[in-house]
């Protein structure tokens, strides 16, 4: 199995090196920086609106090592949220009016306190409780086989990645054997009611391109996915979110190694859509890292760009003070504003 950039001592495991690349080169003289681009439409500085989503990253450990992973996750990552930090998140959750709680990783299920946390958080009663499951984890070990039932019990909204409805494309991005396991896991989720009409159990899929190109039209892709998965495997799901790969971490490494970096950045800048800026994820989301620090989004978290605010940790959470901040941007943000835009909930424009 491949290793994370960090375990390989890759240059890009150093986030300041990534930011240096994103801030120089073609962005010195050829292409406008994201800040100058959004200034043209008077959208600089980017400011948060009402906080609606709390996205908590419970750890970078994962059973997979996907080629494009912006988290640089893998079995060799040991950053795992402690129960204490989870307690701090729960105290905040009790006092904020977010409608969505979004648990991500790594593979969030690998955190030893995952089930406890889900149980406690579901008692608080957020409207939309998302767990981002990579699907294969359900089959990775016997102790995970009952996850579909566990999700159902807590009315979890399951959001899962599947880069394509064919084996070849999926395995190339996510590792060999991933497609077959993902299909099996989707069938297990369907079997308990997930993705089935009128079950109330939401199962959404995330599509992201398996290479140096932008996603196509979300609706058309959803139609193709629905048709193929139904015909070939009798699988149902609710919605497909088309997500753009942001040029950070392992995807940035891939772009540079395959000599696609400049063309990809050109494509992102060319597809810039000012109306997508209004609704980029960071305007209504706050991201919490495994060690409790706060970020404008999961991508800024992976670039180690903590919120530009006096409050930087969930333990000192104060919504009023936090909402009064400028969002930290860099050229990776072009990934959120290309075409119909991109967020953890798919297109935004």
């Amino acid at each position: 199995m491949k290793k994370s950039l960090q375990a390989r001592n890759n240059d890009l495991a150093n986030t300041s090196r990534q930011l240096e690349i994103l801030s120089n080169g073609i962005f010195k003289d050829e292409l406008p920086t994201f800040a100058s681009k959004i200034s043209k439409t008077n959208q600089f500085p980017l400011r948060p609106k009402k906080l609606e989503i709390l996205q908590i990253n419970v750890g970078y450990m994962c059973n997979q090592v996907c080629a494009h992973c912006h988290v640089d996750a893998g079995p060799d990552r040991k950053e795992i949220m402690t129960k204490e930090t989870m307690q701090q998140c729960l105290s905040v959750l009790k006092n904020v009016a977010v409608h969505t709680l979004d648990l991500t990783g790594g593979a969030p299920e690998m955190n030893p306190h995952f089930r406890w946390f889900v149980e406690e958080a579901s008692k608080i009663g957020v409207t939309n409780f998302i767990v981002r499951s990579n699907l294969t984890i359900i089959l990775a070990n016997k102790k995970y086989h009952d996850l579909p039932d566990f999700f159902k019990k807590h009315n979890i909204h399951v959001v899962s990645s599947l880069p394509h409805y064919t084996r070849g494309k999926t395995d190339k991005q996510r590792g060999s054997g991933v497609f077959d396991k993902s299909i099996k896991a989707l069938q297990m989720l369907n079997a308990v009611g997930y993705g089935k009409p009128n079950s109330g159990l939401e199962l959404d899929l995330v599509y992201n391109p398996s290479g140096a190109f932008l996603p196509g039209n979300q609706q058309e892709l959803e139609n193709d996915f629905k048709k193929a998965l139904k015909e070939d495997f009798n699988i149902d799901f609710n919605t497909l979110f088309a997500i753009t790969n942001l040029p950070i971490s392992r995807f940035l490494d891939y772009l540079i190694a395959s000599d696609n970096y400049e063309d990809y950045m050109y494509a992102l800048v060319e597809a810039y859509n000012p109306s997508a800026v209004e609704n980029v994820m960071c305007t209504n989301t706050l991201s919490v890292s495994w060690d409790g620090f706060l970020y404008d989004c999961d991508f800024n978290q992976m670039l180690n760009l903590k919120v530009n605010n006096t409050i930087k940790h969930i333990a000192n959470y104060n919504e009023e003070i936090l909402q009064n901040r400028n969002i930290i941007i860099n050229q990776h943000c072009y990934g959120c504003t290309a075409g119909a835009g991109s967020s953890c909930q798919g297109t935004v424009a």
């Binding site: 394509h164 494309k169 391109p209 290479g211 190109f213 196509g216």
Partner: peptide, 11 residues
Amino acid sequence: TGDSLKRGITK
């Protein structure tokens, strides 16, 4: 070629 990939068309 790029457009086909975007649309999820296989090789």
